[in-house]
Nucleic acid binder design. Structure first.
Lengths: 205, 205
DNA sequence: GATAGCCTTAAACGATCGTTTGACTCAGAC
DNA sequence: GTCTGAGTCAAACGATCGTTTAAGGCTATC
């Protein structure tokens, strides 16, 4: 079975991402999940130890990718004299939107948004540990380009940018992709709107 | 028992708001809930019919209040020649932040944010039905003050404002209230930041 | 005091959950 | 050929879930 398809472990991870996003962490049962993945019920506990560790693994797999893309994009422009605020925002925003369009789904960002909403302290700490240094690097670059802002003012504004981004990613909003617009085009439109909106919100006097 | 305290129905609603916010709709069981409320397990099904209808009722109670406050604030300023963009944003934002600080809780907005994240279509329709006319009125007023924006451009920007607001309300962000700042002061700071950020994001050329 | 209707109560119901168990398969090492 | 260990499988475990039931308490009405 592994020869023609993915490994059992990866089949579980893929199915988990879809079902967690669709029904939540509690809402998606291991029986649904393993049925969708075409594996035995006991396989989750065998390969991951528990459902909670599976959840963690789903996150880690995607967040590592997002982290690396963001940092790579930032490294290309950080510190350069000709770098604009919009460039930094693009490095922050585009990888996130791309990730939500990558492979198995627009769905992962709903998983993430849901995790935020769950407001679980364990998960919060996990995200902070894996994201802390990324946010610090972006904050430093924003600070360089917005020297007229106090530290606290800058934190506030970055936080609101994050809110707008999270909202846009998770597809909560009124704005839905219309059927005559491809997913790629919609993503680029979203990025463009987010970048302009955020640049204005960040840099206003 | 009802004479010295609230009615059973209201005790359930109050406890539900707290526990739904803390543990989610699935995560909070009726047994926890009724124990916290000091009522019998069967009381929920007797008074509300089912757990789902209880969830709905928790929402309705708060959203009706939010709706009415927003519309009242908007009515005071809509159409006036001296009304500014910041005024409309204040009418949109402040009632939401006040609600998240009202009575039994900072918690309701976490409930709401969680509901967004649950992404349930039933709940989405419910919110759209109860919120549709409010959003339309605000959109009309925004359109009046921002005549240079196309309809679609305006929709996008309002959506991003909503995202920033939701994010700020639900306490996800990095920005946490410090212990030496009162809750009221923190709320006013949040409102001020949100209004200025959103005004810049909405009105930029 | 009897009756009726609202409400509360303890107990049970069936379903479903995450997890564990023990047997089975099967490829590679010796 | 035998043994080993990783992986898969059906079945069961105990716990917990939302909901229902049947009995009883309480108040108001007559």
């Amino acid at each position: 079975m592994q020869t023609s398809q993915q490994s059992t472990k990866e089949r579980i991870l893929s199915a988990a991402e879809v079902l967690f996003a669709r029904h939540g962490f509690d809402g998606a049962s291991l029986r649904q999940l393993t049925a969708a993945a075409g594996v035995n019920l006991a396989a989750v506990n065998y390969h991951f130890g528990s459902k909670d560790r599976l959840v963690e693994e789903v996150f880690r797999r995607r967040l590592d990718e997002l982290n690396s893309r963001r940092l790579k994009a930032l490294a290309r422009i950080a510190g350069h004299p000709e770098t604009t605020l919009e460039d930094v925002l693009a490095a922050f925003i585009k990888p996130a939107l791309e990730l939500s369009h990558d492979g198995s789904g627009t769905l992962f960002m709903r998983v993430l948004a849901r995790a935020f909403a769950e407001h679980d302290d364990t998960l919060r700490r996990f995200l902070s540990e894996n994201y802390g240094h990324v946010m610090r690097q972006f904050t430093a670059e924003f600070a360089r380009l917005l020297p007229h802002l106090s530290k606290e003012e800058l934190y506030w504004r970055i936080d609101l940018v994050t809110g707008a981004l999270t909202h846009a990613m998770s597809g909560f909003g009124m704005i839905q992709r219309k059927s005559d617009v491809t997913e790629t085009m919609h993503r680029e439109q979203t990025a463009a709107h987010l970048i302009r909106f955020s640049a204005a919100g960040l840099s206003h006097p």
